[in-house]
Measured scan of single mutants.
Amino acid sequence: MQRVNMIMAESPGLITICLLGYLLSAECTVFLDHENANKILNRPKRYNSGKLEEFVQGNLERECMEEKCSFEEAREVFENTERTTEFWKQYVDGDQCESNPCLNGGSCKDDINSYECWCPFGFEGKNCELDVTCNIKNGRCEQFCKNSADNKVVCSCTEGYRLAENQKSCEPAVPFPCGRVSVSQTSKLTRAETVFPDVDYVNSTEAETILDNITQSTQSFNDFTRVVGGEDAKPGQFPWQVVLNGKVDAFCGGSIVNEKWIVTAAHCVETGVKITVVAGEHNIEETEHTEQKRNVIRIIPHHNYNAAINKYNHDIALLELDEPLVLNSYVTPICIADKEYTNIFLKFGSGYVSGWGRVFHKGRSALVLQYLRVPLVDRATCLRSTKFTIYNNMFCAGFHEGGRDSCQGDSGGPHVTEVEGTSFLTGIISWGEECAMKGKYGIYTKVSRYVNWIKEKTKLT
């Protein structure tokens, strides 16, 4: 034993070699072989497995989906700052455009905790909710729209109204504003409101030439003092309507412009014939205590009207009353817009006519005020429907199939267009061939041609 100890002390290297040989010859039971080890760690190889990531292109799944990435790591994937920024906006807080917040056709661009709407022409605001041009839906104005110097929408209202708090709607500024039905039992019968379409306001006024200088022999019209197929109006439903009495009662109609003036057809009036105007009328054979009678003290036909040349060209006249009318729910003026808007309103496509005229061709006159909704007829169809001249200051309205029309005794009465609950004068009943005849239409004086003249002559002093 002493000898062994001496050998170990003198030859430590020998001992180490012996131990190493023993270990190498022993069977290893701690580690699995290569094949079995792979069965336990069965993990798919990654895209760049075996390579240094710093030297390969980034992978979106590896960089940002398996674990949260930084902007720089995302930049490695896209290799483009702009594309990385677009991805980053949604990656950080989701897609803010998912709810489609942009209105009126706006395009949404996502941002971090926010979004941006790219608005089409005519709109602005956070969600493109603000109209900035009158060309689109009248700028959301209830009545009139004008573009300011910086191309912003400025709404306005006709006389007797003021802008509401929203700067879009119009509200009454006087007790009985024009064009409004205020009798409670008839307010439910107000005709369907007309909503502004998209309009090209630059070209809204037709490029028409008034044929002022045409000389033409007097034409022989049949029954051209021209509501057939209409309905009984309720008291106060058309408070701007008046009836004219002269040699015979209810020979023509008219509309209240203001307390002192009536507008009617020029062919209705004769110099030297006494005319009485009755406002607030409903049943011409009954006294309903809503009527107001006034005498006409002055007749002003349009300066281009000449019955000797043509009885229905420039067929418009103004009547001055001896005493002002007292405005109330049964006696209310009709609204008159400017030339541009009167023309736009007419193009809405349908209007209402009213009167006490004959209820059928050569038949009896109506006792109760009649009204009828009539569609506008395109000019080409209008011209083809008659052998008589249709001037540019006239328009056609009615039904091709016949059966409904204005008729004798309705002449001078109103053709009105309702705009968001307020009625505007767009025409004056003038003439036609018979009444409600198939293929024939009622012919009306186009008020847009005469609004400046009306307003100039009827100013209240």
Rank of each mutant, 00 (worst) to 15 (best):
Y391Q: 14
V377T: 06
L460S: 08
T194Q: 11
K152Y: 10
E401I: 10
N151I: 07
T225W: 12
T287F: 09
L367V: 13
N36W: 06
T186P: 13
E10N: 15
V242N: 01
K168P: 02
V228Y: 12
A279Y: 01
V154K: 12
I344R: 11
L383E: 10
P101Y: 04
G106F: 02
N343G: 12
V77C: 15
L14F: 09
I214Y: 13
Y352A: 06
E420W: 14
A308I: 06
F78E: 15
R226N: 11
G442K: 06
P177R: 01
L369D: 04
D249E: 03
A308K: 10
L103I: 09
E67G: 09
N166W: 00
F224Y: 11
R75K: 14
H267Y: 02
G442M: 09
N36S: 11
C178P: 01
I284A: 06
E53H: 06
E82H: 10
S114I: 06
K457R: 14
K188Q: 09
V227M: 11
T85W: 06
P172K: 06
F123A: 05
T461L: 10
K168N: 09
D111T: 07
Q2N: 11
N203D: 06
I300Y: 05
V257R: 01
S217L: 06
A279N: 02
H314N: 12
Y312Q: 06
R62N: 10
Q408W: 15
R43D: 10
F221M: 09
A149G: 08
F388W: 12
E54L: 04
C18D: 01
E86K: 15
T85Q: 09
N213C: 03
A173R: 09
P301G: 04
D378G: 09
K347T: 13
E86R: 15
E165A: 06
A337K: 00
P301K: 11
E281H: 10
E288H: 07
G355D: 03
T342K: 00
A173I: 12
K293N: 07
N304T: 06
A37V: 15
D200T: 09
Q241I: 12
Q57S: 11
I284R: 10
D249P: 02
G402Q: 15
D111H: 10
S430F: 04
P44E: 15
R180M: 06
F399H: 13
K39M: 13
D405L: 14
I136T: 04
Q143I: 01
V296H: 01
F224N: 12
L346A: 04
F144L: 05
E320R: 01
E418D: 15
V92S: 14
V277H: 00
Y201P: 09
D95H: 14
D150R: 09
A265R: 01
N343Q: 07
E79N: 09
L383N: 14
N306E: 05
E76T: 12
Q57F: 09
A307T: 10
G280S: 02
K274S: 03
K311Q: 05
P239L: 01
T215I: 07
C117Y: 01
F78T: 03
L367K: 15
L24T: 05
N343W: 03
H400N: 09
F345I: 13
V153K: 15
V30E: 10
L425N: 02
A337H: 01
C382F: 03
N213H: 07
Q167K: 05
S365P: 07
K152A: 11
H361L: 12
P239E: 00
L325M: 04
I300F: 05
G413K: 06
Q237S: 06
Q408K: 09
L325N: 00
G357I: 10
K311S: 06
V277R: 01
F251M: 09
T16M: 15
